[in-house]
């Protein structure tokens, strides 16, 4: 359900029209005023004038995020039917429901930037737009559900918390709601992992195996180091932190928590440098990341294929009942 607060504009309409970039002036003047506003920490609303570069960048960023929420549903969805207790089954269904809800909120933010939802789904299913690397991998055991909900969501939330202050206000507001829900998912995931880690020998082996398998994609998830000076998303304050800053934050919080459970991480180089206070690690396989996010991951084809098949199967409902507006 949409939180009504998340839709409240920061400034009323009449106040926004007074902003210099919203007034009828030459393009360059508007551009400069817009840039100055954003660099000073000002927020942008959907109805504001904005340079094409800004609109395109925000759209690309939010669309990939929405795609990731939508595709992220699939690996976990397979386990709704197999959840081993009533409580786990309810928690998992609720978590996946949240993610579908996030996809819906984010696609709405993206739609307001000018791209219809069906066009975004078309692009996603045709492989023209991307989604997060971690959702291109198969799930093999129940422990995967714990590791995904705990660590994949944790890695995501580190990035998402930094987006609550995005210059694009509708996205920032949506992220506040999403972060709150994600923090509940992390508790559910940690509880699954803790239960398995404290369980029988084979449960413990199951969770260690899952962790070993998910660690390399987790280390790749935030992307290769980028140069703060040339990163346009940082310039426009669409996001606030570099890939490496996010990865360091993730490692700082979660490596100790994983080890606390007596579980190990499959990287002999992984350690905190006492002098720099930075985490050292083996270089992630960036070639794998590039290959995976361009649709060549171990489960990419199956996931996209499944989405295409499901979309076809329910097309009649959208076309005949819901009308062409939602017939995506």
């Amino acid at each position: 359900m949409t939180d009504p607060l998340a839709l409240d504009p920061v400034l009323p309409e009449r106040e926004r029209s007074k902003l210099p970039f919203n007034q009828d002036r030459p393009h360059d003047e508007r551009y400069q005023a817009f840039e100055a506003h954003v660099l000073a920490g000002g927020k942008i609303e959907a109805g504001d004038w904005m340079p094409d570069e800004y609109r395109t960048s925000v759209l690309r960023f939010v669309e990939m995020h929405a795609n990731s929420e939508l595709m992220g549903v699939l690996p976990e969805r397979d386990w709704i039917m197999r959840a081993p207790t009533l409580r786990r089954k309810l928690a998992l269904t609720a978590k996946i429901q949240d993610e579908v809800g996030h996809a819906q909120l984010l696609y709405r933010v993206a739609e307001d930037l000018g791209k219809p939802r069906e066009a975004m789904l078309d692009d996603l299913l045709a492989g023209r737009t991307k989604f997060h690397n971690v959702f291109h991998y198969p799930t093999r055991t129940w422990a995967d559900i714990g590791v995904i909900a705990w660590l994949v969501d944790a890695a995501a939330i580190v990035a998402q918390q930094a987006l609550r202050d995005s210059s694009y206000a509708p996205y920032a507001r949506t992220m506040k709601k999403i972060c709150w829900e994600e923090s509940v998912h992390i508790m559910h995931g940690r509880d699954v992992v803790v239960t398995l880690a404290g369980g029988t020998a084979s449960q413990r082996a199951m969770v260690q195996e899952a962790l070993d398998r998910w660690w390399p994609p987790l280390m790749q998830m935030h992307g290769p180091r980028s140069d703060r000076a040339t990163d346009r998303d940082l310039h426009w304050r669409i996001k606030a932190k570099t890939s490496e800053e996010l990865r360091q934050e993730f490692l700082g919080i979660y490596v100790p928590r994983v080890r606390e459970l007596g579980l190990s991480l499959p990287d002999p180089e992984l350690r905190l440098d006492p002098e720099t206070r930075e985490w050292r690690y083996s270089e992630p396989d960036w070639a794998e990341l590039r290959s995976v996010v361009t649709g060549h991951g171990p489960a990419s084809e199956a996931r996209i294929g499944f989405r295409i098949a499901q979309r076809e199967e329910t097309r009649w409902v959208r076309e005949t009942v819901l009308g062409p507006a939602v017939a995506a």
Binding site: V73, R77, I80, V100, A103, Y107, Q310, V317, R318, A328
Partner: peptide, 10 residues
């Protein structure tokens, strides 16, 4: 619950 994630629209 099999519809979760694949219903006709979000």
């Amino acid at each position: 619950s099999e519809w979760t994630g694949i219903a006709p629209h979000l």
